[in-house]
Amino acid sequence: MNKKEVLEIRKQFTPANCAITRICGCCVDHEKNKRMESREAFLSLPEEEAFKYFDIFKKTLSGPIGKNLLNVEFPLDSEMIGGTHEFLMKLRDSKLGDDILLEEFYDKVIESYIYDENYYIILIHAMYDIPGKASDGIEMFDASDNVYEYLLCSICPVSLSKPGLEYDAEDNRIQDRTRDWVVDKPDKGFIFPAFTDRNTDIHGALYYTKKPEDMQEALIDHVLGAKMPMSARTQNEIFKMLIEDTLGEDADYVTVRNIHETLNELIEEHKEEPEPLALDKTDVKKIFEKSGVPSEKMEDFEQTFEETAGEKASLLAANITETRKFNIETPDVVIKVNPERMDLVETRMIDGRQCLVIAVDDHIEVNSVNVRTIGIKK
Rank of each mutant, 00 (worst) to 15 (best):
K185C: 11
E311Q: 15
G164D: 01
E79T: 11
V109Y: 03
M140E: 14
I191V: 07
K4I: 07
M140Q: 15
E346A: 08
K34N: 05
A50C: 07
D184A: 13
P331G: 05
I81V: 08
I287T: 00
A19T: 12
P339N: 02
M1D: 00
D184C: 11
E275T: 05
E149M: 10
V334G: 13
K227M: 13
A16I: 13
N118M: 13
D136E: 10
Q216I: 06
D332K: 12
I259Q: 04
A50T: 03
E31N: 14
A50N: 06
L61D: 06
L70C: 06
S144G: 15
I243E: 00
I130S: 02
G66H: 00
P163Q: 08
M298E: 12
T14V: 04
R92E: 03
I9T: 09
I202L: 15
H85G: 07
A41Y: 12
I328Y: 02
D93W: 02
S295K: 11
S231P: 08
S291Q: 00
I374D: 15
N264H: 11
P193Y: 04
I81R: 02
M342R: 15
T321D: 04
T234P: 06
L61S: 05
L69A: 07
D116T: 09
P193S: 04
I191M: 09
R35K: 14
R257K: 10
P274T: 01
N17F: 14
E40A: 11
D145S: 14
I374M: 15
I328W: 01
I124D: 01
V337T: 01
L43T: 08
V72Y: 07
T60C: 08
F305G: 01
P46G: 11
Y113S: 13
E5C: 06
K297H: 01
L45I: 01
E117M: 02
F13Q: 10
E296V: 08
D300R: 10
A143F: 12
V345S: 04
C153L: 04
S135C: 10
E299A: 03
E103V: 05
G292H: 06
D201A: 02
R233D: 15
E296F: 10
H270R: 09
D332F: 05
E79M: 15
R372Q: 14
Y148R: 03
H125K: 09
K378G: 05
D98A: 03
K378W: 02
I124F: 01
K210Q: 13
M89S: 10
G375I: 00
A126S: 14
G25W: 02
Y253W: 01
T196K: 04
Q303E: 14
K290L: 11
K32A: 01
L43C: 05
L160I: 05
M80F: 12
M228V: 07
E273R: 07
E37D: 08
D351M: 12
I243L: 03
A232D: 00
M127N: 11
L315S: 00
Y150F: 12
D176E: 15
I20Y: 02
M298D: 11
N2D: 15
A313N: 00
V72C: 10
T282D: 15
K188H: 03
